[in-house]
């Protein structure tokens, strides 16, 4: 059995609090003075107007990728729910009648409240169908059910954009509104 750690004995300066408070104020004032005299390297970010650029490897919200013909890359092989340590991925597989891929996810839900952003699903995927490169870190909602990202939501999370921005992005890129590169090239009954 682990014994409780003995509490740290505070020194006189620590127990008087005054010195510690002053130390904190020195740090704050230091940043203020640095920001005033060295404005090229501003040390605080005016979130949400300004956002910190995330590194290329940052794992944000998941997105689902599409094939060149517009179908979903995912074939519901169940590798990601198998490897998921948080058991947050729920896929129901179905048969795609007119698609050579044969199998597709009828539902593909990720419970973002359970997700621990480990990225195992991305590594496990044999089809490069799921990525976490959206750099979206504001994953929030008013209800628990809204925290479950559905297949349609994750397909729309293109290039780090929110769904509404995704629609605008596709219009700008000359893509069909549903994400097909060319509406005619989408096979009949293609899984979406």
């Amino acid at each position: 059995m682990a014994l409780p750690k003995p509490q740290k004995v505070l020194t006189l300066s620590e127990s008087s609090y005054l010195v510690e408070v002053l130390k904190g104020m020195v740090l704050t004032m230091g940043h203020l003075i640095k920001n005033i005299f060295d404005q090229d390297r501003f040390r605080t970010i005016e979130y949400p107007d300004v956002r910190k650029p995330m590194t290329a490897r940052y794992r944000g919200a998941h997105r689902l990728l599409l094939r060149p013909d517009g179908g979903l890359k995912c074939v519901a092989c169940m590798c990601c729910p198998t490897v998921c340590p948080a058991k947050c991925i729920n896929i129901v597989a179905g048969e795609a009648e007119n698609d050579p891929a044969e199998k597709f996810p009828i539902t593909f839900d990720i419970d973002m409240l359970r997700c621990i952003y480990c990225g195992f699903c991305v590594e496990a995927c044999p089809k490069d169908a799921i990525r976490m490169d959206t750099k979206i870190y504001e994953i929030n909602a008013y209800t628990r059910s809204d925290m479950v990202h559905s297949k349609a939501y994750m397909v729309n999370l293109m290039d780090g954009l929110k769904p509404e921005a995704g629609a605008a992005y596709r219009a700008e890129q000359g893509l069909a509104p549903d994400g097909y590169t060319n509406a005619d090239s989408a096979p009949e009954g293609s899984p979406r």
């Binding site: 074939v75 519901a76 092989c77 590798c79 891929a101 044969e102 199998k103 044999p126 089809k127």
Partner: peptide, 8 residues
């Protein structure tokens, strides 16, 4: 075909 094969 392992990803779509029921035998896997």
């Amino acid at each position: 075909d392992c990803p779509i094969c029921d035998q896997s």
